[in-house]
Write a protein that binds this DNA or RNA. Structure first.
Lengths: 361, 361
DNA sequence: CTGAAAGCGCTAACAC
DNA sequence: GTGTTAGCGCTTTCAG
């Protein structure tokens, strides 16, 4: 074996082959765990490779194999906390170290075109994870034509695998929780009803009321008209909560807020009015993003990390077996009790969320 | 021009060349904006390409050009909020659509080895953005040997470009703000002093006191001993704040908390004790992560988005001119007044942070 | 089991 | 201006 390689010159499969006295084909086989290589040869090649710190060039490999070992994640950046958790799950599922993650943040849910461009450049990734956004029609066309596997998370389309959450059921449960706590005048603070999740959560709320034998009272159901992020913002929460507060004696004693971000705004409004939760208002949110833990918000948990993990897994399965039947998986949210509704739970910053959410076990 | 291509067969540069009656070299030139192509030919090629929905194959291109047009971001996933904002800046700087972002999340500050493996597979990216973590020595070696440009964000190493924040100055200013508000008994809630930023912020606090002519009082300086995330957690904030509260009349009237996350915990402790901010305690944080806006926390803003953006820019510059002198850029944090210190500012959810932070202008 | 050779799709000299 | 021809580094037949 000769001297150490000139460090600046990238070492290729040819260098290894030469030094190990084999053909490049053999080196390749070794690095692809091809069975038909004698144990001795394999060891020799591996030794030389280690000595030269050789690593197969991913692009050359990708070109020859017609496979990139990379996934593209298309994510709406505005949902910050939200997607962060999902991404966590994605990463942990990718932990084999074999697959890379390409991130493409979209600033507005309706502006997915740049991603479309990314998509059309076939050859950059083997599959796509698409989060929380409407699927533009041309995107669908492009993807289908390119035959790139696509898995949806927190979104739905009949032609693709998806993982989402039962908004209706979750909202119903949230309402039921409020009812179980003794509340009879339960209001709802909704997002912009143009958005499907917003409508679904409203619908679940109504079902919850019905099951509780409480009549629907439109005067304590406030919804946002803001087009910005479909009203899923702290500002709408603050503003609408202000209106509840202004109702005086006619105000609800408990409010189901359609998202944690809005609930954060609502909590601020309550505080600013010199009132308190849960004493003056019981408030329950939806999502269980990390923020909820920070502000002690009772909420409905979406298994975000799990969804991210499963999505990756599904992508891998579909890559292995392209004509698997399409699967639509939907999760039932789970109640997470903190202090904003005043159950008997301790109010210290419990670690439940964090542990469950970030566990990589 | 013939019929539409068989959709399942990927169209290559050869197809375009044939259909446009030119050589592949010309097609290549067109797609690389090479000047020496006649306007007419260029137009013809482009038309054919559009018709066939042709896009150069990134991997083939990368192999031939010895350039990937992708950056790797190595990020601590555990500091959740923090990196999210920086990533925003990174994305906006990458918005040209030419460069892709490869994300590698690290779950523990000391576990950067997997990234090391990523790094050693040269050919996957042209440069690295490394966030908020200590740089392992072997990582440094590997990077230097591979000659991959590396830019540090919220971190420091003499051999690489970096963007970070003046912790000392920021902490001094935070303390000064409390003093300006009339407070004389100003405490500090610190993270684990094993960590450098934690020490720097403590040091800035002391300077601030000194400048205000206030004697340092060790009894109102509490620091975390938790090894977890160096004590930068909500839990430590909650716990240490509890100790302040328990001090009764000897407690500080204002507290500088070394991070927003801890401040969130501190605020919860205050609320749980039936006390209020700013009436009973003025609290100022550090970082200005999105959470701070959600809970109305006055804090010192680190220009996170800007840092992400500049880091990318720097990487591009260094790619263009490899032997640029190394630059260490550090930012002075900026005071963001919300309501936790009770200045005269409105307490409604102002949009300042969001606007400044997420602006893509 | 292993070597040789033909691509994978594109870029970049090099001629004309 | 434009066609032609070597590679880029690796995988994968195809012989042997």
């Amino acid at each position: 074996m000769e001297a150490l390689p000139a460090l600046s010159v990238p070492v290729t499969i040819y260098d290894i082959a030469r030094e190990a006295n084999v053909g490049i084909g053999t080196v390749s086989r070794v690095f692809n765990n091809h069975p038909s290589v004698s144990e001795e040869t394999r060891r020799r090649v591996l030794t030389v490779a280690a000595h030269f710190n050789y690593h197969p060039h991913p692009y050359a490999r990708g070109l020859a194999r017609k496979r990139t070992n990379a996934f593209l994640a298309v994510i709406p950046f505005f949902t910050t906390f939200f997607f962060l958790e999902i991404l966590h799950g994605v990463q942990s599922a990718l932990a084999d170290g074999e697959t890379d993650l390409l991130l493409h943040g979209v600033s507005h849910p309706d502006h997915a075109e740049p991603s479309l461009r990314r998509v059309s450049s076939r050859g950059r990734f083997d599959g796509i994870l698409y989060f929380s956004m409407r699927l533009p029609d041309d995107f669908v066309q492009e993807v289908k034509q390119l035959k790139v596997p696509l898995v949806l998370v927190d979104a739905y389309h009949p032609d693709f695998d998806s993982f989402s959450v039962e908004n209706v059921v979750g909202a119903r449960q949230a309402t039921a929780h409020l009812h179980a706590l003794g509340h009879r005048r339960i209001g709802m603070l909704a997002a912009n009803l143009e958005s499907l999740p917003a409508r679904e959560r409203l619908s679940g709320y109504r079902q919850g009321l019905e099951e509780a034998g409480i009549a629907y009272d439109a005067s304590i159901v406030l919804s946002s008209t803001s087009p910005r992020l479909d009203g899923f913002t702290r500002e709408t929460g603050y503003e609408l909560m202000g209106r509840f507060i202004a109702m005086g004696s006619r105000r609800p004693s408990a409010v189901f807020v359609s998202s944690d971000v809005q609930a954060a705004g609502a909590l601020m409004a309550v505080q600013d009015a010199g009132l308190r939760c849960p004493e003056d208002f019981a408030i329950i949110g939806f999502d269980d993003i990390a923020l909820a833990g920070h502000i002690g918000l009772t909420t409905m948990r979406q298994p975000l990390v799990e969804m991210g993990r499963l999505a990756v897994q599904r992508l891998n399965e579909r890559l292995a077996t392209p004509d698997l039947p399409i699967t639509q998986h939907s999760f039932v949210p789970e109640l997470v009790v903190r202090r904003s509704c005043g159950s008997g739970s301790p109010s210290a910053p419990e670690l439940t969320t964090t542990q469950l959410t970030y566990s990589h076990a």
